[in-house]
């Protein structure tokens, strides 16, 4: 190898700074984050509030449409109990369209579709929209939801 190629090798190496298992860890994180999101969807349909709360960080902030920010686990728990006292989630799907892992933070965005039965007035509500979530890696390497926002993609009803 001539000196020019050796110099290029140094430059390329300097620009890399990727750990030996970088690609593998990234794939594992993406899979783990997808599993968290799926567990969230499954618990939403099941009305399983303890599982929902268990998927969230202690300083979680939920940012639902038509509501003020819901801050902290106990407030989130109270909100879920209040919701499930009034509705039954018939179905819920979430499709992650993008996952961005940055160290101990991750951002995901995607689309959702759900059918909810309003038990108070015995009507079915269908909705489809998009979500953005921030997740944070925990000390044990697992991921939890730290911030969650969503909104409908359906145009507002004409009044």
């Amino acid at each position: 190898m001539n000196r020019a190629a050796q110099a290029l090798l140094i430059v390329v190496t300097a620009g890399a700074c990727v750990s030996q298992d970088g690609a593998g860890r990234a794939s594992a994180d993406v899979a783990a984050i997808a599993a968290v999101r799926q567990a969230y969807v499954d618990a939403t349909v099941a009305g399983d509030v303890p599982t929902l709360i268990g998927l969230m960080t202690s300083d979680v902030v939920l940012l639902p449409p038509a509501e003020r920010a819901v801050t902290g686990l106990e407030t989130a728990r109270a909100r879920f109990l209040w919701i499930y006292d009034a509705v039954t989630v018939l179905s819920d799907t979430a499709t992650i369209e993008e996952t961005l892992v940055i160290g101990d933070w991750a951002y995901i965005r995607g689309s959702y579709a759900r059918r909810i039965q309003d038990d108070m007035v015995d009507s079915i509500i269908e909705d489809a929209g998009k979500f953005s979530s921030m997740l944070r890696r925990q000390d044990d390497g697992s991921w939890k939801i730290a911030r969650d926002m969503w909104n409908t993609s359906r145009p507002p009803a004409v009044q």
């Binding site: 449409p65 038509a66 951002y107 926002m149 909104n151």
Partner: peptide
């Protein structure tokens, strides 16, 4: 790079 928003009330 990414922006999402929603209302605080109906």
């Amino acid at each position: 790079a990414r922006l999402i928003n929603n209302r605080n009330t109906e």
